[in-house]
Design a protein around this nucleic acid. Structure first.
Lengths: 154, 154
DNA sequence: GGTCGGCGGTTCGAATTTGAACAACTCCCT
DNA sequence: AGGGAGTTGTTCAAATTCGAACCGCCGACC
């Protein structure tokens, strides 16, 4: 692989823009959530997923696959959140190994408390900055990117 | 802030797509660089910036502002890279406080070694997945997002 | 000239992340 | 039944991250 096709100008701008926005948006989001509700971004994501799940509970593996982080990272976060009373662990009846993470009422309340500020921030830093066309391009293009990265492992 | 404007379907797809792609792309990139060249993504970024800088050196602050991470994070990474011989510190003649990070020949060689594989991965997971129109939308839209997040502090 | 505010980098401690190793268990196949 | 491969979630050590506190120094202002 001596000389690959380097990125041309358009590709470079897109790549750099993506990289920078990715880092900056994530940092800002973390900051806002922590200040506003005392949640880390991963924790917020967990709350959202659980709230949307049937029975407000999900298997650990499903949560981990959702996106978040590695399995061990999830174990850590759920432990933290359990200490804070936001979730509860429940072992799976049909599979002794399995563990459900269950959203508690306190967790649900915390989410409702944090959501408005979070959404406002998301609008402010990203959604309201983009044109409808750009939103569609993000959804389609990055959706496909995500799908591929999920699909094939390595 | 009782009821903000929630995200509609289009906005939600764009936001989720961005979030997922952001996490997945970064993870994949880190992995590839580490396996391929023994570099972390932050370290690669530092090499790139230094290589592009006049005299192949930059002030610590300029590097930190570039994007990467917090000031302390940069100190850490530069220390690691100095141990590995990829960069060198040089104190600024006109300002005793100032420190330049200078790219060494070994650092330059390491970058040339890592770049082809990196670019290939960037193409594979993102650039070649998108249409030209989507590339422009990323560049324009996310470019503006980044600019705003840099411009105004909080 | 003296001094006060701010900048540039590092150091510190705490929190978080990751991959690898591990233990327990399910499922399938013979 | 019995064995083996693949899953599930946790534990572990190591690496990395961040923000806050800190030190020394530049520069402007009185």
């Amino acid at each position: 692989m001596a000389e690959p096709r380097w990125l041309d100008d358009r590709e470079m701008r897109a790549w750099n823009g993506f990289l920078a926005a990715s880092a900056l948006v994530n940092r800002r989001l973390d900051q806002q959530l922590k200040d506003d509700a005392g949640l880390s971004h991963p924790q917020y994501e967990i709350l959202v997923r659980l709230a949307a799940a049937p029975g407000r509970e999900l298997r650990m593996t499903e949560l981990a696959n959702g996106l978040i982080n590695s399995k061990s990272g999830l174990t850590y976060q759920v432990t933290q959140m359990e200490k804070a009373g936001l979730v509860r662990r429940r072992s799976c009846p049909s599979d002794v190994r399995g563990v459900f993470a269950v959203l508690t009422d306190a967790g649900s309340a915390k989410l409702e408390e944090a959501a408005p500020g979070h959404v406002a921030t998301v609008r402010e830093i990203l959604v309201d900055v983009l044109t409808p066309g750009q939103l569609d391009a993000l959804a389609d293009g990055l959706g496909e990117v995500g799908r591929r990265l999920r699909g094939e492992g390595a």
